[in-house]
Each structure stands twice: as C-alpha cells, then as structure tokens.
Design a protein around this nucleic acid. Structure first.
Lengths: 372, 372
DNA sequence: ACCGTGATGAGGTACGTAGCTCATGACCCG
DNA sequence: CGGGTCATGAGCTACGTACCTCATCACGGT
C-alpha cells in the first residue's frame, strides 16, 4: 500500500508486512478450480474428496496463504468457545490473584465469543480434582485449563478428558507426562536458580539457609527446590541448606514450621519460601525478631509479599504474573479450539524479580487491584 | 450452568462467571420494545431517535449487559482493522526486537481481521517522524502506534492525526501532553530507581558511578536518569554520579563516550547504561580491561546484553518485554477501533530484572528467537 | 382537514464460514 | 447397457452486525 512513501527528510524506510485483502474460501475455490463445497470438505476434513482434488485445494491454500477467518468461523458455528478453569481453593493468595485475573479477562473476552467458567477445587485433594475434571466434557467445555497436581490419578484424568475430545492446558503447575496440549507457566527450575543466585550474593560463605515449600508433592515447588539446590551447590558450595519443611500453602501451618526452623537454627542467614505461605513466614520471622538478620526470598506478588517488601522484611519476590499467564492460556485455548495453528514462538512467561522499587501496581498506586 | 455440581470429595465450590448465551441486538430490541432498526440507530449513534426512545434502548442494553460481538461487527463492516507502527530505524537492537515481535504478532492477528504495517523512521529525526505521522489518515490506518520522541513538533503531529479521526497509541516512549489515546510501556522512573537500588547494594559508599544515555531528548532515557538519580540521593547518598554522557543509541558513539568516561575516572565502580548502546559499553569496558572491577547495569534483553550477561560482564539487565508491549498495544488498538470499552485494569508492563539464571529465551535454549 | 416533518418499523443485502440437501456427472461392475 | 457408487457442484440457511431503502405513523402548524 502506498509504496511511494519515501520522505524528503532522512531515511524513511517502509516495510509493509501484511497484505490487506485476506483471501477467502472463494478465492481458494477459484484458484484450485473446484467448488466452494469441495473446499469446505477439504478444510473441515469431511469425507468424499479424491486425493488428487484434496491436494489441488491444499496447494491453492498454500499458494494464497489462506487462513480461516476465526471470527466468521465462530459466528457461523453459532459457537462460543467455552473455557473452564480448575483452580485450587482455600486461602492461597496467589490463587486468589489468579482467579481475579481470570475474572478480569472473562469480561473482555465475552465480546470475542469466549465464555469462561471457573471451578475451585479443594487444594491438595487429588481425588476431588480428578472428579472435577471428569465432570467436564466436550458438551460443557471446549478447553479445560487446570492447575495440576502431578500425580498418577490426575494424569489419568487429564488423559481421559483429552480422549473425550476436549483440549487440556496445564497452568502454573504441569503434568508433563499427560496428554495435555501444552503448559503455561514459568520455568520453576530457573526460578529456583535465580533465587539461589541472589541468595548466594546476599549471604557470606558458611551461612545456613532455610527452605520452605508448600508441598513436595507439587511439581512446581519441587522444581524450585531443585533449581535452588543445584545452583547453590554449583556456585555457592559454602552455604548449608536446611529443610525443606512443608507448610501446605497455609499461613498457620507455615508459621508453625518456620518458627520451629528458626528455633532449631538460631544462626539462619536466609530463608527461601517456595510456596504460598508468605504470611506465615513473615509473621514467624517478625515474632522471632529476626527480620533484619534474615534475608528472605519468597514467591508471588500478593498482599502479604508486597507488604513484606515495603516493610523491608522481604528482600526479593519472584513472581509469575497471573494476568499474563491467564491471557496466554486463554489465547492458546482459543487457538486450539478455533483450529488455528500454534505459533509457539512466544517467549515463555517471564520470571518476575521484584524489589521494592520495581513493584508495578495498577494505577501506579498502592496495593489493591489484582492484589486482593 | 450445571449448578448441581457439588462433589462428594471435599469442598468443591463452583463459580460460574460468564453467561453462555450472550444477548444480541434482537434481545435488546425485544427488551426495549423497539425495532432492530432503532437499536441500530442508537448503538451506532445515528440521528433520528427521540431522546426517550434512546434512553429506553440504553436501559435495555444495561439491563441485558449487552456488548457488541466484535467479530461479527468487523465482518459486517467488511473491515479489517489497520494498525500502523512507526519505529525508529538504525541498528538499535531493541527496536529490531520490537520489529520482530510485531512481525510475529501480525502473523497470528491476520486471522482476526487485523492487518499490521510497520514504518521505520530515521532515529532522532523528529521532522521525519512528523512527516511519517502526517502521511497516515483514517483511510490508511485506524490506529497509529508510535515510538514518540517527546518534543513539541511530534506532539502537534500526534494531535493533528488524532483530530483526523485516527487513534494514536504511544509505545515505549511517551508524549503525555499529546492527544494520544494511551501509552504502552514501562514506568521508566521506576526502572531507574530499580537500577539505583541494585547498584547501591553492589557498590560501597564513596564509589563513583558512570551514567550513559542514548539521548536526554528521549523521555524514557530522561525518566530513567531521574529515577536512578533520586533513589541514589535518597538511599545511597555516599555514591557519586558522573555524567550522563550521550551515545545516541549507536554502538560506536557509545563506545567512544564510555572510553572517555573510563579514562577520566579510573576508579569507576559501576556503569548504568540507560539507552541502547550496550554493545559499545561492553566493548569499551572490555578494551579497558575493567569488566571485573565495574558493575554494569544495562537495559533491554538483546543479543549484546545476553552475551554480556553470560560472559559475566553485564550484571543485571532491566528489560521491557517487547512482545508483551506489542501484544498489549495491539489489543488496545483493536479495542479502541472496535469501540469496545477499555478495561484499563491491566497491570502495566512489568520491568523485567534479569540476571544470568532467569534469562528466559524461546525454546528454553540459547539466544536467537526474538533476540535477533 | 391538510401537509410536512420527524420518529419508527419492516425488511432487504452483505460480510466469511459452517453445514446441509439435492442434483449431476463419472466411473466401474456385472 | 443398466444399476450402483462415489466425487463434485450448486445452492440454500444461519450466525450477529452494519447499513440501506421504503413505508407507515404521530404530531404540530396552518
């Protein structure tokens, strides 16, 4: 379009990247020398097309770089894409943020023929999660997006759902051996390594570091542990690691375990909390009067961790941006369901590293927003 | 939907967030007791509707929570949303990444009736940018997305474009006094503060820190400078700041300026480079043999900064994720053009903080991808 | 009672795709 | 050569919205 664009001022280069008139099925039919009906049969994988004809159509599609108009396609099928999220319940603040992010997306996706449901399943209860998954089928739901616990039963449930013809995406915590279409989340080994790299620079050689997880049954916590452990072994072999203790992502339980840890090791120089028990860690540390002497790295920007950061109790927060994750998952779900091809060139979800000064809150103001 | 869902296992709470049958104009017409034509007149702001009737329709819209089906709307108008990016040219690697991100998005957005063009304008040449903006009009382009230089002429060009009925979004570098619809980018003051906070922890009191910008004429560089400067003043008053010198986002020029800076201050403990001259800073530092003694914080994940990070020359990279920015800008553009309401509840673009261990590259592998 | 004006309704076409029916033709088998 | 099967084409409706024309009705002024 308008290729005579070279300006008189300096070098203005023009790159026109997209042709503005997208080909339609009609163009494909004309190019292939067949009728619309045949193109339709080929594009939608219906029977009754000779192989040679099929190839003619496919060649025309390739030649014209045809891709289906997703909007029109959804419209024609009078279909709205139905996405169902399955999240752990309980008072895990990260999951609350995730749920808030989903709500926020579902509002704007309504206009794009996408409807979103959320079910919260009791945390750490894998039979309940299996049951919730089994309730979903192609009639309810085009794509299930699941925060998975990585055990055998859940894997089987995901496989069954997938065989029923439903797409499954795992979110935050993966079940890689299952037939899920893809995983959206951060690289938790890298997150653990990042924590280790920072903690190593914070603490002198010979120091003891305490480790706290939600549960070693959760793949994401396990991976963070491995990453942290390996990096410390490689780069800071002088440090001694203690734990991990399990707090089951519950503030009280985590506080109790942390308290015990602090009592057992009065010289603890650092704490790395890999799960959602931030509030518990902070309160135990505060009660022990050891906030100043202990470097604390936690996961996920939540009300608790932000307050901790502001108060100088938490040194670093590693975060997976729930809004980004939800958006990425929904985008993938729509592509899967609409039959568009996956680009998969997206850089994976970034591991956010937050200190007090790059806290990035909505409205540029204090707390609240997606942190409730 | 299916509200009888309570499982036998543990507490399975169900939250159904979206109604699956979105109301259409027909529903609005029925609810308001008027015809389709009248609803259409109201929704599209056409004349010839009595005020009382208009209110009836608006009430029905509110009651049903109607929102237009964006896909069908674009289809009906036989319209593809035309977005035009204006980026600085030259060999600025960040802008190259940004251009790559745009290309990658334009491929998948083709299916959603969105077409994307890119024009690269000579960097630091504001008349050329103005001319490029003035070439765009509602007939070419529904929304211009501009990496703005914040001067009076550019501001005026943006205002003129906006009055012509075109939406304008600023990207990366803002022109806040203009009539642009919104800005997509990071909070550069916060980025500068984050750099200062880290640099302060890296260097002992009394140390000298050198500052390098692309140009103080660029708002984003200026803001980073202010943030860094203020934080150091507040939290590390013992540090002495030197500069800034200007490298005009060019590797050679930046190398030269950095070399001079290193020569003038043989005791420099840290360098903060706010612009795109990373390659120049790295080569100057390497030539001077002072990579080990100098802490280096730079901006933007590019080939150069990633190599520097891997080699241990660069300590921290602050990054704005270009893919995220482009996606956010395109999403906003589509909403603006399609007339959907802006949610604006999105958390702004995060400031990425990268050390060697949380580098997050496509395929989980080395370099390349969006880093070319 | 008349006309003029303005508000409203009825109904059409179009957009690109999905999915259907029915007719036509080619071809092979017996 | 008749009958059957299979590939293909022609044509329709529907999805939700945009935009158009034309007819109708109400109301106010003369």
């Amino acid at each position: 379009m308008v290729p005579g664009w070279i300006s008189g001022y300096g070098a203005v280069q023009v790159t026109i990247s997209t042709q503005h008139n997208k080909p339609t099925v009609k163009d494909v039919a004309r190019q292939a020398g067949v009728s619309l009906a045949t193109v339709d049969r080929v594009l939608n994988g219906r029977a009754g097309v000779r192989k040679s004809t099929r190839e003619k159509v496919e060649k025309a599609v390739a030649a014209l770089n045809y891709s289906r108009d997703v909007g029109a396609s959804l419209l024609a099928r009078a279909k709205t894409i139905k996405i169902h999220f399955l999240l752990p319940g309980g008072d895990n603040p990260f999951m609350a943020n995730l749920a808030a992010a989903i709500r926020s997306c579902s509002r704007s996706d309504r206009e794009n023929r996408t409807s979103i449901d959320v079910t919260r399943v009791e945390a750490f209860n894998s039979p309940a999660l299996c049951k919730a998954i089994s309730r979903l089928g192609p009639e309810n739901c085009d794509c299930a997006i699941v925060v998975a616990t990585d055990d055998e039963d859940v894997r089987k449930s995901i496989d069954r759902a997938s065989l029923k013809g439903m797409h499954v995406i795992t979110l935050v915590s993966d079940s890689p051996a299952s037939r899920r279409s893809c995983f959206v989340g951060i690289d938790n080994v890298a997150a653990g390594r990042t924590a280790g790299s920072l903690m190593g620079r914070f603490c002198a050689s010979g120091a003891r570091i305490g480790l706290i997880v939600g549960s070693m049954g959760l793949r994401d916590h396990r991976e963070r542990f491995i990453g942290f452990h390996d990096l410390v072994l490689e780069e800071f072999p002088g440090l001694e690691l203690v734990g991990p203790v399990e707090g089951f992502d519950d503030a009280h339980e985590t506080a109790k375990r942390t308290q015990e840890l602090l009592a057992d090791y009065p010289d603890l120089a650092g704490l790395y909390s890999m799960g959602a028990g931030t509030a518990g860690v902070v309160s135990a540390l505060t009660n022990a009067g050891r906030t100043r002497s202990t470097r604390l790295i936690v996961h996920e920007l939540t009300r608790d961790s932000v307050e901790g950061l502001r108060a100088g109790i938490v040194d670093v927060v590693l975060d997976q941006n729930p809004l980004m994750e939800v958006k990425a998952a929904i985008e993938l779900a729509r592509k899967l369901v609409a039959g568009a091809e996956l680009s998969s060139k997206d850089r994976p979800i970034d591991i956010g590293v937050f200190v007090r000064d790059n806290l990035n809150l909505p409205d540029g103001k204090q707390s609240s927003g997606n942190l409730l």
